[in-house]
Amino acid sequence: MNSKNNSAVVRLDNIIKTYHLATLDVPVLKGVNMAVWPGEFVGIMGTSGSGKSTLLNILGLLDTPTDGKYQLDGQEVQSFSDSELAVIRNLKIGFIFQSFNLFPHLTVEQNIEVPMVYANMPKRERIQRARELGERVRLGHRLKHRPNELSGGECQRIAVARALGNRPSFLLADEPTGNLDEKTSNQVMEFFHELNRDAKMTIVMVTHNPALENTFHRVIHLRDGRVVDRNGDPIMGGHSSMENSFGGHN
């Protein structure tokens, strides 16, 4: 277990998140345990209100848990300061958004460069890498275009190229196909699989689209702030069941 512990890309231990409103406390995550192993393609699913978004924010280090332990590449990050978190987001997490969040006034190439800019990569190296990544998502011929000249599928591929800029530990995708039609959506999913297969990229994808359930290696179901099994039964804190929820796919 220890060796597994140390090699997990992401490991959450009893993560609790409570929002303090004026008069009452709203518990959103009530003790989430999960792990993501290198090379995995994990889906996080759940209905709205299940705490999915909150979990995503915590995984993406945009939010800090009220309690619990979050290890990223073996490093405990739950108590990091705002700027430390920004640096880790920059270097270790590749964000992919539902609505792409590309910068409309920048060219495709410049869009890909953005995270590298914040990593203080020298300009020449940055451009070189942006071109490589552009080629890799098969949009090398579009580098000088602006996002509004691209189709939705192409935009999402650019967003993936951008996420890969600083060689992150894992990609964190938030409904990446939510804004795409079915055909494009399939293409993008295929693209993610390719990335996972060929580049051994670890991917965590949050979605509520049941059609995608079978395309993941493993699905973490979330209901009412807890990880549940396929049937919707809570997986309680016992050792064996934890093992179950952390369980690797091989």
């Binding site: 700027s83 920004a86 920059n90 969040n101 995270p115």
Partner: peptide, 16 residues
């Protein structure tokens, strides 16, 4: 603000 949020998510420090 959305651009700001995206930049922050991609690793921009508050100072940036």
């Amino acid at each position: 603000r959305k651009e700001i949020g995206t930049r922050r998510a991609l690793g921009a420090l508050k100072g940036d």
